[in-house]
Amino acid sequence: MSRVGKKIIVVPAGVEVTVTPENVVTVKGPKGTLTKEFNKELTIKMENNEITVERPNDLPTVRAIHGTTRALINNMVMGVSSGFKKTLLLVGVGYRAAEKNGGLEMALGYSHPVVIDAAPGIAMTVEKNTTINVEGIEKDVVGQVAANIRSKRAPEPYKGKGVKYSDEVIRRKEGKKS
């Protein structure tokens, strides 16, 4: 049995979950609504504010999606109740960001400003010109938007300049010896 797949998902107060016989899960909460269709081979049950995901057999294809399905449903519940947030830091002289038309405009050492449009359902805020917060209810979309921002100027290993996650540790190199 999958260690992740057999865990029970506890639905917090204020979150409403509906499961159809076709394995379409709809989660409504204070931050929004998410709907996703899952594989019909699995059994998703909702009882007493607890969600369980069960598999009928141990075929490799069913085993592979068991834990993933449970994790996706848990992310949906967490997203509509508390949301997800990624924080990015701009490190370097002259590197700064500003909110513009719902998106971002960043100066990253190029001859032109880097403009990033906001994805639907994603809020990007700037603090102190060098800290960017990406927030939303879908974990994968928040992570993808943050990765796209980071890819515009990934941190380099010699001085650590670039766009990095707040919890990221940059492995530094020594540089040229004279």
Rank of each mutant, 00 (worst) to 15 (best):
M1S: 13
R3L: 12
K6Y: 09
V10P: 03
P12Y: 07
E16P: 00
E16D: 15
V17D: 00
V17Q: 01
T20W: 10
T20F: 12
P21G: 08
E22H: 10
V25N: 00
T26Y: 04
K28R: 14
G29F: 00
L34D: 01
E37M: 05
F38H: 13
F38S: 05
K40H: 11
L42S: 05
L42V: 06
L42C: 08
I44V: 15
K45Y: 07
M46T: 04
N49M: 09
E50A: 11
E54G: 15
R55W: 02
D58H: 09
L59M: 10
T61R: 13
V62I: 14
A64C: 04
I65L: 11
H66C: 10
H66Q: 12
R70I: 02
R70G: 01
L72A: 12
I73G: 00
N74L: 13
N75S: 09
G79K: 02
V80A: 04
V80P: 00
S81Q: 11
F84E: 00
F84C: 03
K85G: 02
K85H: 12
L90C: 09
V91G: 01
V91Q: 11
G94K: 05
Y95S: 02
A98F: 09
E99N: 15
K100G: 04
L104Y: 07
A107K: 12
A107M: 11
Y110A: 09
Y110F: 15
Y110L: 08
V115T: 12
V115Q: 12
D117F: 09
D117M: 08
P120C: 05
G121M: 02
T125I: 05
N133K: 13
N133L: 06
E135Y: 06
G136T: 03
I137A: 02
K139G: 00
K139R: 12
V141Y: 05
V142A: 03
A147T: 03
K152V: 04
R153E: 00
P155Q: 04
P157I: 10
Y158M: 07
G160M: 08
Y165I: 06
Y165F: 15
D167R: 14
D167K: 15
I170G: 02
R171V: 13
R172T: 13
K177V: 11
